[in-house]
């Protein structure tokens, strides 16, 4: 059997060196391991090198810096959820983070891992995209920022190049009278992978008219997809039932789902509308409460 190396570097530079030196495709970054270890167990991947990034301080914290909430990529969601700045600023992202698996999974799983795993059904990815979050990537050429919206390129694939890893996520603080919401559909109440996820962010003017909105769906296409038509249906409206209904229809139209044991194409298309409507209403209610 091939032996596997485990390394836990303490600095970004050391991690980049380890990843750069490894033969292409042979190294894996370990954050919470809730996806990685399962994939290793079922034999889907067989890495020669595991680089555990949890000893690197830059991947661990959560703090407001330069007008954004900076979330360490390997910070477990159970700790993240207790950060006062998260729930206050981004209730939708907080609810998405709280939906990743059980308390046990939350003790390990991170937003960075959720993003890098590049599953179309990841709960926090739509929630990060509607907030305009950026991913900070470290690599042999230094650091770079990529919008989360562009980070995932397909199921299981990302923009990360050789020697690169995700250090942190930067979520711009919300404008006044803005709020977000995330809803997902699972067959049970817990412990399932999203059949459909819908994240919505909205900004209202003083009169309650929507001036900006973003709508992103999960689990209905190879990657999370932004639905500008749904956002357009919301912008300019007072988020009345008719506008919400149009946004829902736009969500259905944007879906490009598959049939699998978790849901049918038809089901996912219908539920995308329902969740988008409900998430938009929830986001609007939150935004109206913020003056």
């Amino acid at each position: 059997m091939e032996s596997m190396h485990y390394e836990s570097p303490a600095t970004v530079a050391e991690a980049v060196r380890l990843l750069s030196d490894a033969p292409p495709g042979s190294a894996r970054v370990l954050a919470g391991g809730t996806d990685l270890l399962v994939q290793m167990r079922i034999g889907r991947i067989d890495p020669a090198l595991i680089v555990d990034v949890k000893r690197i301080p830059e991947t661990r914290g959560v703090a407001v810096r330069d007008g954004a909430l900076v979330i360490g990529a390997s910070l477990e969601t159970m700790t993240l959820r207790r950060a006062p700045d998260l729930e206050k600023n981004f209730p939708g992202l907080a609810e998405a983070a709280a939906l990743i698996g059980s308390d046990q999974i939350q003790g390990r799983a991170s937003l960075g891992g959720n993003l890098c795993n590049a599953s179309p059904a990841a709960d926090t990815v739509p929630a990060l995209i509607v907030l305009g979050a950026q991913a900070e990537i470290a690599g042999p050429e230094g650091t770079r920022r990529v919008p989360v919206a562009e980070f995932v390129t397909g199921p299981g694939s990302t923009v990360l190049g050789r020697g690169e890893f995700l250090v942190s996520l930067h979520v711009p603080l919300p404008a006044p009278r803005s709020a977000d919401a995330y809803l997902r559909l699972i067959p049970r109440t817990e412990m399932d992978i999203a059949v459909v996820g819908s994240a919505v962010s909205v900004t209202l003017d003083a009169g309650g008219t929507c001036t900006a909105a973003r709508v992103v769906l999960g689990a209905v296409a190879p990657t999370a997809i932004e639905v500008p038509e749904a956002a357009a249906a919301l912008i300019g409206s007072t988020l009345d039932d008719a506008a919400l209904g149009r946004a829902g229809q736009a969500a259905t139209a944007a879906c490009n789902p598959i049939n699998d044991m978790r849901g049918t194409v038809e089901y996912r298309r219908k539920v995308a509308a329902v969740l988008t409507r409900r998430a938009a209403a929830k986001a609007a209610e939150r935004a109206a409460g913020r003056n």
Binding site: P187, R188, T189, E190, M191, I193, M261, R262
Partner: peptide, 28 residues
């Protein structure tokens, strides 16, 4: 409500685990 063996067209079991063989959890 949710439990079932799901086979693909080749007769291979698709959900041999607790993730997709959905037994009730406490919150259900």
């Amino acid at each position: 409500l949710n439990e079932e063996y799901v086979y693909d067209e080749k007769g291979v079991l698709q959900n041999p685990g607790f993730l997709d063989y959905r037994m009730p959890v406490a919150s259900d």
